[in-house]
Design a protein around this nucleic acid. Structure first.
Lengths: 335, 335
DNA sequence: AATGATGGGTGACGTATGTCAATATCATAT
DNA sequence: ATATGATATTGACATACGTCACCCATCATT
């Protein structure tokens, strides 16, 4: 159902000097949420039906004229989150409860990630965005901000073919919500040889892109394991032989272009020389690096990712958080 | 019964509640407001009564863990507000609907003023605060912010005797809500002679205070007319002869220490030489000057205040807004 | 051990809110 | 003008919410 923000019928009667001289949606929202009038009362005073008042309020919520927000700082202050911070050295950690609605856990984590991002992003932010199901979910639940001074830049190149959480989609989705400039990477994610990579990296347009990425103050990325269901394959971004090669070298996870082993150490194969992405040292120099992800299959990958210091802000779910904590501290399961 | 015993038994290990391994208040709030579970569902999943869930949610709201906020920018974008901006030259204008709950209009305006202030104040703000019923109302509805870097400074000195909206009360109330430093003026508002004023102004402590005020980025003040009911008298801040003197010189209103005539021009009497307040030119140099006030008796005072350029942000009510607009533009009443 | 005060938890009830299909109104094309 | 599709409004119904008096553990006092 499409919601359109428009002054409705009443504005047309302005000559009548009816009660709705001010915007009906906002007026209803103000009276209801700020002054505590009942829908009945509002309806009575304006001479309209209560159902209409309800509709006005609905519209106000849809348009974002009123919003309920939960204090994200308190979620970061939860015991489990604090424990995880201490054990892993990550700066901040946000956790969705194990019990919740029946949506996939990635969507639930995405929603919390969106709240975290809304808090962190500034009017001048350069936000580097990777891709993944969770990042995509985040982009969809992000509130409409109005930050025209921001740049939302794609961190990693794309593979051929579209899938429902491609780098371009994630980036542009977020840019739309944030109201910022969308900067896509104008190059393939993986090329045929190291020479081509060098050539491309030297192209002004591409070099400029990586220069922009160096100026990121925030990055946002998912994390994936290298098991059967990994979206690296599902998305067509990589093939089984390539993954097998990384696995053979000890890799257990992947974030934003980098493979790492269970201690978080870089794992490189010849692919890395053909893979266009933000240099690892640039990535690690970004002050706020938000990783969103969770689920049973990702536990080892997340633990390793944290050891590698890729993220300093983690958004995950309770079950995963406990499991990750357990790999750092045997007694942690009891908490 | 057996069920409860078991629950309590389990709960005792870890703080308070195991089903709520995370904080119950926050968890309930998250599930309800963010994930859209019904109170019933939350109750069922945690094995508690729905009434308890309701209580948890209530607590979350009381604690400010969740908050509903209405987009103040849109209130400023209302037609009437825009018209008023254009007609009067004020930069921003916010208007509460004529129809509302049965609280006094000052309280309703105060609530909107609070929302405006919450949006404008920054972590490093120096906020100059005058006094009045509306400013007091504003302070009471202000949300708890956590801005320890702010200073909330009293703009005008105080008279003897306490009343329920004294400068000290307004200032300290706001400082508590904002979480900032409260800086009261350590001098009487009105002294016996110009010499005493000069002497005091030269006192390091007092001079320091006025220096701080020069650094204000925001001021917040009410406006009063000089009629019978004016709080200048009611508060004991001034006496009828003093007011009569100002009236005789053409004064129609007062803000934050300054009298002005109906064109907004300064009106001075010998009192001004004995009145400790922020120098007018310093006041007018503050980038954001928020005036809160409304009601039938204040129409002329507000119009004059705007002509004098004292405020560049006005928060008032619809009825007053229309009346003020009419004094600037005859046709305005029709809008 | 008995007593009283405290406070969170609860069931049951009345009310406010949310839903939906039917109806009225408007904007545009014919 | 009139038809037509789109949108706004409504009454009636179903449900979720908020309130309140009561209950039962807990803890301090006698």
């Amino acid at each position: 159902m499409a919601k359109r923000a428009e002054r409705n019928g009443v504005a047309r009667h302005e000559g009548d000097a009816t009660q709705f001289a001010l915007d009906p949606v906002l007026t209803a929202a103000w009276l209801y949420y700020e002054e505590g009038l009942k829908q009945d009362e509002i309806a009575a005073r304006f001479g309209i039906s209560r159902a209409t008042v309800f509709n006005l309020l609905q519209k106000a919520r849809d348009e974002g004229a009123v919003s309920v927000s939960i204090d994200v700082a308190r979620i970061g202050a939860l015991r489990l989150a604090q424990r995880l911070c201490q054990a892993t050295g990550v700066a901040e950690c946000y956790i969705v409860p194990a019990i919740g609605n029946d949506r996939p856990v990635t969507e639930r984590i995405g929603a919390l990630g969106a709240r975290v991002l809304e808090r962190r992003i500034t009017p001048q932010s350069v936000l580097g965005v990777a891709w993944g199901r969770t990042v995509m979910a985040l982009s969809q639940t992000l509130a409409a901000l109005h930050l025209p001074g921001t740049s939302i830049a794609q961190i990693t190149g794309s593979a051929i073919g579209t899938y429902d959480f491609s780098p371009e989609l994630c980036t542009s989705n977020i840019a739309v919500k944030v109201g910022g400039r969308c900067v896509n990477m104008l190059a393939p994610g993986i090329v045929s040889s190291a020479d081509v990579k060098r050539l491309l990296m030297a192209e002004p347009i591409v070099a400029q892109h990586f220069a922009l990425l160096r100026g990121c103050d925030i990055t946002l990325f998912g994390v994936t394991d290298l098991g059967e269901g990994t979206s690296l394959m599902h998305s067509g971004f990589m093939t089984e032989p390539t993954l097998a090669d990384y696995r053979a070298h000890g890799a257990v996870g992947f974030v934003s272009g980098y493979f790492f082993d269970k201690e978080g150490r870089p794992v490189l194969t010849d692919l890395d020389a053909r893979h266009l992405s933000m240099p690892r040292e640039d990535f690690l120099a970004v002050p706020t690096r938000i990783c969103v992800g969770g689920g049973p299959s990702k536990i080892a990958a997340i633990a390793a990712m944290l050891r590698g210091g890729y993220a300093n802000v983690l958004v995950t779910d309770e079950t995963t958080a406990r499991a990750v904590l357990a790999t750092f501290d045997g007694r942690a399961g009891a908490i």
